[in-house]
Simulated assay, not measured.
Amino acid sequence: MNDAKSQMIGLTDILIEPADIFSVKYVSGSYDSAEGFQLLDKEIAMHEISKSSQEVSSRRLFYLALPPSVYPPVYRMIRKYCMNKSDLSGWTRVVVEKPFGKDLDSAELLGSQIGELFDEPQIYHIDHYLGKELVQNLVINISGRFANRFFLPLWNCDNIDNVRIVFREDFGTEGRGGYFDEYGIIRDIIQNHLLQVFCLVAMEKPVSLKPEHIRDEKVKVLQSVLPIKDEEVVLGQYEGYRDDVTVPDHSNTPTFATVILRIHNERWEGEKQGRNEFVIRLQPSEAMYMKLTMSLLILLLSISLSYKQRYQGVMIREAYERLVLDTYGPCPS
């Protein structure tokens, strides 16, 4: 996966029409080959010409299911060969996903490299976890959390002992070891997916639901996290991980991690013991449910909402589908 020259990339043009009908064309080429991108541009242009009588503008969206290490060379090729060149009402946009570098320096370098190629309104940073149905509900209901008389007086250290954010998968790297082994579970999952959920649960009410105001409150939460203690971190590697032929035989990359984060602010500092639980299960089988301790006998009363049972027959968009469709909205100012 690290040798860009030896890898082949499937470049796909997806046009989303008003009736949500997808037209897909597969074009093959290598990361650093001009010919592949020139062919891609030609195929897209032919498709646009075929739709010109329907007054469809040229909307070119590029999402890379690739290691971040090859983002710069691929985007350079896209910038050189595949931009919308003639349709003034159209646009070209790129989607950038995690993990965005390995540390602050590499993230800043990657950001500057992409920033040299595209203007900021053309760049969409996504975390597909934020597109999941119940994570979306967490975002939408931020204001509701602070306005709801049930949650408002309870959402603090006086009533919540701890919040546990658990991520489990029942499969291995399955041929993706060349990518995963370069990053590990912390960079691949914890520092993006799980920290996003962590911030949404712990943040204060933003001024509005505008992205920049939500971002500001997330940053405040992260700035309030105390330095992590060594004894409150556990790292490990699941048995069988190195059986994957794409994983180096002597890899010590962690595939399991648990960490305790302590928030130093008025709402969360000094947590007290409690037995009640409010569980939000993001996947699989999305659900929300509560377990309330009743009387000294510790009788548990469950109040639950199972999406699978409650919304039978209702289509819930997949996370990637939701986020990709969002990129087709008005260009951010």
Rank of each mutant, 00 (worst) to 15 (best):
V197H: 03
V197K: 00
F198V: 00
F198Q: 07
C199K: 01
L200M: 05
L200Q: 00
V201N: 04
V201M: 08
A202Q: 06
A202I: 03
M203G: 00
M203K: 02
M203D: 02
E204M: 00
E204Q: 03
E204D: 15
K205P: 00
P206C: 08
V207A: 15
V207M: 06
V207T: 08
S208R: 10
P211W: 04
P211H: 10
P211I: 05
P211S: 03
E212F: 02
E212N: 09
H213W: 01
R215M: 05
R215K: 14
D216Y: 11
D216P: 00
D216S: 15
E217M: 14
K218G: 14
K218D: 01
K218F: 03
K218H: 05
K218E: 13
V219L: 15
K220S: 06
K220V: 06
K220H: 11
K220T: 07
K220F: 07
V221K: 03
L222R: 00
L222S: 02
L222A: 07
S224R: 13
S224L: 09
S224P: 10
S224K: 01
V225I: 15
V225R: 04
V225P: 07
V225L: 10
V225N: 06
L226D: 11
L226R: 15
L226T: 10
P227T: 05
I228N: 04
I228W: 07
K229I: 00
K229V: 04
D230R: 10
D230Q: 15
D230H: 10
E231M: 09
E231K: 14
E231H: 15
E231G: 01
E231S: 13
E232K: 12
E232C: 11
E232L: 05
V233R: 11
V234N: 13
V234R: 12
V234S: 12
Q237Y: 06
Y238E: 13
Y238T: 13
E239G: 12
E239T: 14
G240M: 02
Y241K: 05
Y241W: 11
Y241I: 04
D243N: 14
D244F: 10
D244I: 02
D244Y: 04
V245F: 04
V245A: 13
T246V: 08
T246L: 08
V247S: 07
V247N: 04
